[in-house]
């Protein structure tokens, strides 16, 4: 099958790649653009390890085709720290020991950032339901939820 030329923006930078029509956006990010921070845990939309935002909307990049990425604004974990400065969520995850193996972490950080963009002051239940599509097998979620709530508080200037 012939490949399709795609031009799009990832983390603010213009990129181009050749996508097999069957390649997912996740495949293209990882294999064509060497952005391996976005993880594959299931490829069926069930684990959230592949979470990215496309034009501001949180998506499972394993459920979107690479060829659908033409002329989008894609944000991945690699773009979360700005100019070497960690995002508050990233800092709070380290501080709260909210990761063990760290494999779910990129997806959860991207998803949590999308939550805080929508709702800067979520309660615990709202955080739990928003992150229900992001599986973590190591932590039991406790420290993840605390880290997100703490980062939200800091970002609101409440901490």
């Amino acid at each position: 099958m012939s490949k399709i030329h795609i031009t799009t923006k990832v983390n603010g930078e213009e990129v181009e790649f050749l996508a097999d029509p069957r390649d997912t956006l996740l495949d293209c990010l990882r294999d064509q653009l060497e952005l391996t921070g976005t993880k594959e845990g299931c490829s069926t939309g069930d684990c959230g390890a592949c979470s990215v935002t496309v034009d501001g909307t949180l998506v499972c990049s394993c459920l979107m085709l690479g060829v659908e990425a033409q002329d989008k604004q894609i944000e991945t974990i690699e773009g979360m720290a700005e100019d070497g400065e960690l995002h508050p969520l990233q800092r709070k995850f380290i501080e709260h020991a909210a990761l063990q193996c760290g494999f779910c972490t990129p997806g959860i950080l991207v998803a949590a950032k999308a939550l805080l963009a929508k709702n800067p002051d979520p309660n615990e239940t709202e955080v739990r339901y928003w992150l229900a599509g992001n599986l973590c097998r190591c932590t039991g979620y406790d420290k993840i939820i605390r880290a997100v709530m703490d980062a939200a508080a800091e970002m609101r200037g409440a901490a």
């Binding site: 990882r30 952005l35 391996t36 921070g37 976005t38 993880k39 594959e40 991945t76 974990i77 690699e78 979360m80 720290a81 960690l86 990233q90 995850f93 380290i94 990761l99 760290g102 494999f103 972490t105 990129p106 950080l109």
Partner: peptide, 11 residues
């Protein structure tokens, strides 16, 4: 591990 730089099996 919070920046996506850590390299896992498939990376």
């Amino acid at each position: 591990k919070v920046t996506g730089r850590a390299r896992y099996g498939a990376d």
